[in-house]
């Protein structure tokens, strides 16, 4: 149970203390079930994995944002351009990939 509490506390803090409705919308877990979990009902494995994934996604994206902010402050124009080019190309590749999946679905 202490592990469950830890995970819920972490989730609440990372997602800015969401309401039960917001929690339900982010996790896909019903509102009444969210209420029960926060009030001590035992978490199922599936629910545990959902919270765990949302926490790790949030931590990863926030650390990337922090890193990007540090880069903007510290790196020179050439280094920033290199990073920007790489991001742009990764995004363009993702765009191509999404488009190719759409074409596949339409076919």
């Amino acid at each position: 149970m202490s592990e469950q509490k830890k995970i819920l506390d972490q989730f609440m803090s990372l997602y800015n203390r969401p309401t039960y409705e917001e929690m339900s919308s982010v996790t896909g877990i019903q509102v009444t079930r969210c209420f029960r979990l926060v009030n001590g009902a035992e978490m199922k494995l599936k629910e545990y994995l959902i919270f765990k994934k949302l926490i790790s996604d949030k931590v990863a994206s926030e650390s990337l944002i922090t890193l990007a902010e540090s880069c903007l402050v510290s790196l020179n124009e050439t280094a920033l351009k290199e990073i920007a080019d790489l991001c742009e190309r990764k995004l363009f590749f993702k765009h191509l990939s999404t488009e190719s999946h759409l074409i596949e679905k339409q076919a």
């Binding site: 191509l96 488009e99 190719s100 074409i103 596949e104």
Partner: peptide, 12 residues
């Protein structure tokens, strides 16, 4: 490359 990838690149 698969036809879907090629079509997507051609579109771009």
């Amino acid at each position: 490359l698969t036809l879907t990838w090629v079509k997507s690149i051609l579109f771009q």
